[in-house]
């Protein structure tokens, strides 16, 4: 690791202030992406602003119409929460399928979505459930949050404070994990929400995307058969040593069908 200055502010305001006063600062949440890249000397921030001392960033609030999760909430807190499981089981399932136990005990939802790894799971929930991302400056619609590979709508220094997920009528998440890393080769969230049908795919492309054709088909017939004929073009999908684009395209179809079957019960 390169040397850096460490700060642990106790309020969001202080965090933002330290950040803007520094040369090349980074926020630190669970550290499960940032610290490995620092150890490998791929990242060398001048200042680390640790968000874990800010009480307001942690916690889960379940209301009649939505579930709000503080940015600093760990994956296991979501996965193991009985309230989340009762309100949006697909969300608890998704969180429970991230990495392994150790990863889930450190990684946070805020860190995950701010990082916007193309293979991360949470983006499928943010887009697939039509969530809203809250920051220290504004609210951002889930559909507008992810803008590309490792890119988001966040401005420099903007802090994610929470994510609220409207309760869907029914939803399910299906993931095809990379056998080495356990990140998503393909992950599909299918949800019937108040604002309509949503099918969001993570892992397959540079960034999470929705499959309109599947959404339309499911709107008239919520069954795996309804989307069996929908082929997702491989053109813009990722290709790597683990999965070529055509395999990913195929897996999107398989995972979507399985998610529909699960959501349909």
């Amino acid at each position: 690791m390169y040397a850096f200055k460490y700060h642990k502010p106790s309020s969001i305001e202080d965090a933002a202030k330290v950040f803007s006063g520094a040369d090349d600062a980074r926020y630190l949440s669970g550290g499960h992406t940032l610290l490995p890249s620092m150890k490998l000397r791929l990242a060398g921030p001048s200042d680390i602003v640790d968000l874990s001392g800010i009480a307001g960033l942690k916690g889960i609030k379940v209301e009649a119409d939505k579930v709000t999760i503080g940015a600093g909430t760990r994956h296991n807190d979501v996965a193991l929460s009985a309230e989340v499981r009762a309100a949006i089981p697909a969300l608890a399932d998704l969180a429970g399928g991230i990495g392994d136990f150790q990863v889930r005990n450190r990684g946070t939802i805020g860190g995950s979505i701010a990082n916007a790894d193309p293979s991360a799971d949470y983006p499928a929930a943010v887009v697939g459930l039509g969530a809203t991302v809250h920051t220290n400056k504004r609210t951002i619609a889930g559909d507008d949050f992810f803008t590309g590979m490792f890119e988001t709508a966040l401005e420099d220094g903007e802090i994610v404070t929470a994510v609220s997920f409207p309760r869907p009528k029914r939803a399910a998440y299906m993931k095809f994990p990379n056998p080495a890393s356990r990140y998503a080769v393909v992950g599909v969230m299918v949800a019937e929400t108040a604002s309509g049908m949503r099918v969001a795919v993570t892992g397959a492309a540079a960034s999470v995307f929705r499959v309109a054709e599947m959404e339309q088909a499911l709107a008239s017939n919520f069954s795996p058969d309804a989307i069996a004929g929908v082929a997702v073009p491989a053109d813009n999908l990722n290709s790597d040593i683990h999965a070529a684009a055509d395999y990913r395209a195929h897996l999107v179809g398989v995972m979507a069908k399985r998610a529909v079957a699960k959501a349909a019960g």
């Binding site: 056998p179 080495a180 890393s181 990140y183 040593i241 683990h242």
Partner: peptide, 26 residues
């Protein structure tokens, strides 16, 4: 049989040089 593989590209770079890509059996 199922997952471990040292894959080198044509230039001789090891593409499976970490546990993110080199799959240990679990």
């Amino acid at each position: 049989a199922l997952c471990e593989d040292c894959i080198y590209d044509e230039s001789g770079q090891l593409l499976t040089g970490s546990y993110m890509d080199y799959c240990m059996p679990k």
